[in-house]
Amino acid sequence: MYEIVAFYLFSALTIGLFIITVMSKNVLYAMTSLASAMVLISGFFFILGADFLGVVQLIVYVGAIMALYSFAMMFFDATRDIKEKNTNNALVFLLGGMSALVLVLMFSAPIFSDSIQALYPMHEGAGNAQDVGIVLFTKYLVPFEVAALMLLVAMIAGIILAGKKMDQSLTEDMSADDEIMIVKDEK
C-alpha cells in the first residue's frame, strides 16, 4: 500500500521535475528541480531496499555533484533567463520519443527472461550496507579501485583545468588587472 502510493507519487514528481529541468529557460529552476528530483530518486532507492545506494545518492549526487554544478552557476546571473536557439524541435521530440520506445522495449526484455540467476544474492537478515560492502570489496574490488583512481585523475584534471589561471578574474577584463599589477610593482 505504502509502496504503491510512494511509487506513484515519487515517479510523478520525478518525471515532472525532470521535465522542468530539461525544458526550463532559467538555470536556477533547472538546478533546483534536478536536485529535488535526485532526492526523490533516493526515495526510490529506499523503497527498493537499496538503503546504502539511496544514502550515497543523497550524499554524493545531491550533496556534492549538484552543489558543484550550482557553484559553477555562480559565474552567471542565475536569475536571468538563458537564451538559446532551439532548432528542429519536432525532430528532437521525434528522436526522443523513438529512443524512448526503443528503451521501453529494451528494458522490458529482462521481464520475459526468467532464466536469469542472481549472481550475488542479497542475504536476509544482513543489512544492505553489509551486503554491499562484502560484494564491493570482494568481487568488485578491482573496478572499485579503478573507480577510485578515475576519481583521483578527474580531480587532478579538474584542478588543472580550472586552476590554471586562477589569479585571473572571470568577470573583469584583464587590462584592469594589469593596472593593478603595475601599481603594486611601483610600490
Partner: peptide, 9 residues
C-alpha cells in the same frame, strides 16, 4: 549516513 545525507541536502 542518512542524517549526514539529509544535512548535506
Amino acid at each position: 549516513l542518512f542524517v549526514l545525507g539529509m544535512m548535506a541536502a
